[in-house]
Design a protein around this nucleic acid. Sequence first.
DNA 1: TAACCCATGTAAACGGTTACATGATTTC
DNA 2: GAAATCATGTAACCGTTTACATGGGTTA
Lengths: 200, 200
Amino acid sequence: MSTKTYKSSLGSLAFALLGLLAREPMSGYDIAQNMRHYVVYFWEAGHSQIYPELAKLERAGLVRHRLVEQSERPDKKIYAITDQGMEALRRWVARPPRPAPMRDELVLKAFSLWVVDRRSALELFREQERLTAAEVARFEAMEAATLDASGSEVERTDSAAFAMRAILRRGVTRRQATLEWCRWMVQRLEAGLKDRPPSC
Amino acid sequence: MSTKTYKSSLGSLAFALLGLLAREPMSGYDIAQNMRHYVVYFWEAGHSQIYPELAKLERAGLVRHRLVEQSERPDKKIYAITDQGMEALRRWVARPPRPAPMRDELVLKAFSLWVVDRRSALELFREQERLTAAEVARFEAMEAATLDASGSEVERTDSAAFAMRAILRRGVTRRQATLEWCRWMVQRLEAGLKDRPPSC
DNA sequence: TAACCCATGTAAACGGTTACATGATTTC
DNA sequence: GAAATCATGTAACCGTTTACATGGGTTA
């Protein structure tokens, strides 16, 4: 007496695609490019995930495509969100997110940091500090650029521009927090090196 | 002409287990409990993942187990890390982590926040602010407790106690950053509500 | 002529979650 | 008598990554 009740519905990726198509119709290729170059700051997916997912969304009636024939280039399918898709997106956004399990490799390494020598530990976090500082700068630049581009629209909290700004803000502050932790670590690890002769 | 070169080696979970066993030998059940109750702040895994992974690590010679027979309770396997396992852990910790793709459901929802009405948006972030504040308090309490318990050992940057403290610090600041973003959002969404009549 | 861009897909493998399975003991 | 704890496992499924596959046009 048991009918398996596996979840049959949509995952986060589906709503990432719907969220993009709600802003502007585009092809699967465009979506992949967006995610590679710009939208790395809210969700990531490769094209091998995107194409099947779009087909699935179309079968469910949440998106629709029209074929755009091109000479000199491969034809493409331009996808657009449907009314049904928009409704599904609306319902999903309002629902609270389920807490995601924490899985951060740097934290995991920190947990076992005591098994390596102090110099290696310091180098690990110095490198990480460097990389994170670059990321912070990159996100600050993106935030400044979008604030520059969109005029007064950013003020309206129900605009797409505000939503974009909001996630860029998140991108900046999240990485700043990482950077500050790296600095906290480097500071202590440097002090720890000085206490004992550097050859130990 | 193509020999598939799939990665045959160990994933992060393996090093989470090795990191725990490097501190103290324990059973698969203990590990699962640790991860459910205490170690939620550095990696998460269910028992259905842990038992097979321990078997795999044993086949690779990185851990070893001895059977502890118990009356009144099921027998258990106590796992301990081997010298080989310790070496593997050391090598892994020193290597820089590969950048993990960003996938945060709340950020994804924020990206499409403009499709829902202002009240729903505000409620979403108020609820999230509440939950995150509780998490911050929980981590601050854990940090205080471990600082209290471990004496001067925490000062030594090559001690297991320092490593534990470091990841608790990370847990606090990461969640503080999330909390501050939620507050940033709530502030703006509240102001946006006041601008137009609340029935819109 | 080699590498890259456009454009779309499928297949295999890997990692993680949820469910199935068992069984004694203790606590409410 | 029901639920929780201790203790170990397997099976199915889902989501993500990496690789395979094709093919014309552009750039270095």
